[in-house]
Amino acid sequence: MRKRRDLSRAVLAAVTAAVLGVAGCDAVGGDAEGPSGTEARSARPSPKPTPAWDRSPASIAAVGDSVTTGFDACAVLSDCPEVSWATGSRADVDSLAVRLLGKAKAAERSWNYAVTGARMADVPGQMAQAALRRPELVTVMAGANDACRDTADAMTSVADFRTQFEDAMSTLRDALPKAQVYVASVPNLKRLWEQGRTSAMGKQVWKLGICPSMLSDPDALTAAANERRATVQERVEAYNKVLEQVCAKDRRCRFDDGAVYDFRFGVAQLSQWDWFHPSVNGQARLAEIAYRTVTN
Rank of each mutant, 00 (worst) to 15 (best):
R4Q: 05
R5Q: 14
L7E: 15
L7S: 14
R9D: 14
L12T: 04
A14D: 02
G21M: 11
D26T: 11
V28K: 11
V28D: 11
A32N: 11
E33R: 09
P35S: 08
S36Q: 10
P45T: 08
P45C: 07
P47T: 04
W53I: 04
D54K: 08
R55I: 13
D65L: 02
T69L: 01
T69Q: 12
D72W: 10
C74I: 01
V83R: 13
T87P: 05
R90I: 00
D92F: 10
D94Q: 13
L96S: 07
A107P: 00
T116W: 07
T116S: 15
A118K: 05
M120D: 01
P124H: 06
Q126L: 03
A128V: 03
A128K: 11
A130R: 05
A130F: 05
A131Q: 12
L132D: 13
R133D: 05
A142Q: 07
G143W: 02
A144Q: 12
A147Q: 09
A152Q: 06
A154W: 01
V158I: 06
V158L: 04
T163S: 08
A168K: 09
A175V: 05
P177T: 09
K178P: 00
A179N: 02
V181K: 05
Y182Q: 11
S185T: 10
S185E: 14
N188V: 02
L189T: 14
L189W: 06
R197D: 04
T198E: 14
T198F: 11
M201W: 01
M201V: 12
G202Y: 06
L208Y: 03
D217R: 15
P218Y: 03
D219S: 15
E227S: 15
R229N: 02
R229M: 04
E237P: 09
A238K: 13
N240G: 10
N240Y: 03
V242F: 06
V242D: 07
V246G: 00
C247K: 03
D250M: 00
D250R: 00
C253A: 09
R254G: 04
D256M: 04
D257W: 01
Y261W: 15
D262F: 00
F265P: 04
Q269N: 09
Q269W: 03
L270I: 05
W273V: 01
F276K: 08
A284I: 04
A290Y: 10
Y291T: 12
Y291V: 05
R292N: 13
